[in-house]
Design a protein around this nucleic acid. Structure first.
Lengths: 222, 222
DNA sequence: CTCAGCTAAATAATCGATTTTTTATTTATA
DNA sequence: TATAAATAAAAAATCGATTATTTAGCTGAG
């Protein structure tokens, strides 16, 4: 097949990795649950080798626990860990956002406006929930994207996934969500104004509010 | 076999992972090099499945690049990335060390003294170099161990591995190393005195000096 | 009744072979 | 001579079966 049209096909292994990552973050598996590999094979219609390779990657990424000779299990949840994750998000995302405000160019400004608009629109159609999650992740990714540090972005992404395991335990909370959505808008405004100091404070507050939501989810449904 | 004596055996996959991680950090493979899986199989006397699982984990960890349908390669080195890694080390390790000084108990103090002593002694016998590397890593791990954040420790460990890919490009530099060793000693002293402010500054300086070493290694041998 | 030791079943890990895709080489064509 | 298509060789990914280890169920001694 033409190389230009299909520069490099994906593999079964990378496909199942993406799917499992999404399902683990989305809470499709119970915390602490032991994964039955044969069942997964059937459920996801995938061979053993690609499945195991994906599970190995997810374990290295932190979305699974691998125990020698006894397979893979979903990490348990704890308040201590949620606190840890939230604290780290606070430190790293604020750091990244400050840098992004310094370094981001006009293309970034456009990306921000676009990401916020997409998120707001998706919010209207409440049925497609996975789509909202995707756009929400994308929005926060855009916020810090031009921070200049590949490793910082990598860590932030990882923490987001971990954080969402908690946040997505419970149902949506319309009241608080509206408040958070309002902050999304304000964050973009402050970024465009390059008001680093106020932006820092607002992102700090935004993450704290998100933490409150996630904590409530954990206490009620974890 | 008795479960108490052998709580859970290791797997071929985890063993080869440890070995490859060490070899990748130690610079046994050239930066940018494409890994010939069949050659590795023979070199390390390991089967294809455990090898591939290890490579997948290393890719998720950041010590390999995985490209769909075209295997694994060793990440290239660049000054930009070295700067990024050093900056992140600075931010995260200082943060962790400050917390460790607040939270570390007397057991930590003992661990610190022990780790520093072991490192100093290993330094005498210059022939066993891998051993020095192991003890050096262990020393820095001990420094931040009681910081209270599992995720922070995880990120720091990852950055250390990345940083060492640069630092270990070149030969040992006795003069600067002696200076760094002296700082190891002072770091322990300040930790025991719980002098957070001075400790912070010294660790900052220590990492900057290490960066200078790594940068020189990269410019001369990368 | 409890618990250690044994056996059977289930599961995890690994192997060897096959299939798919990429890369290198050749051949034909403008 | 350069380019593109066709073919051959190499390498990556996956499959199906085997081996090793753990887990669950059983049995009998204390």
């Amino acid at each position: 097949m033409n190389q230009y049209i299909q520069p490099s096909a994906s593999t079964a292994s990378s496909r199942i990795y993406d799917i499992l990552r999404k399902d683990l973050v989305g809470g499709r598996f119970a915390a602490g649950e032991k994964l039955a590999i044969n069942a997964l094979k059937e459920q996801y219609q995938v061979g053993l080798s690609p499945l195991r390779e994906a599970l190995n990657k997810l374990a290295a990424y932190g979305l699974l626990i691998q125990e020698n000779q006894r397979g893979f299990r979903v990490p348990t949840l704890s308040r201590d860990e949620l606190d840890d994750i939230a604290q780290m998000r606070l430190a790293l995302e604020v750091m990244a956002f400050e840098q992004a405000i310094v370094r981001g160019d006009s293309a970034w400004e456009a990306d921000l406006l676009a990401a916020e608009h997409r998120l707001k629109c998706a919010d209207m159609t409440l049925d497609k929930d996975d789509e909202w999650e995707r756009l929400h992740t994308q929005f926060h990714r855009t916020l810090v994207a031009p921070c200049g540090s590949v490793w910082l972005l990598r860590f932030i992404e990882q923490l987001h996934d971990q954080f969402d395991r908690y946040r997505r335990l419970g149902p949506k909370m319309p009241v608080i969500r509206q408040e958070l959505d309002q902050q999304h808008h304000e964050l973009v405004e402050l970024a465009l104004k390059r008001d680093a100091e106020t932006a820092r404070k607002l992102l700090d507050d935004h993450i704290r509010k998100s933490y409150d939501v996630a904590l409530q989810c954990f206490l009620e449904h974890g």
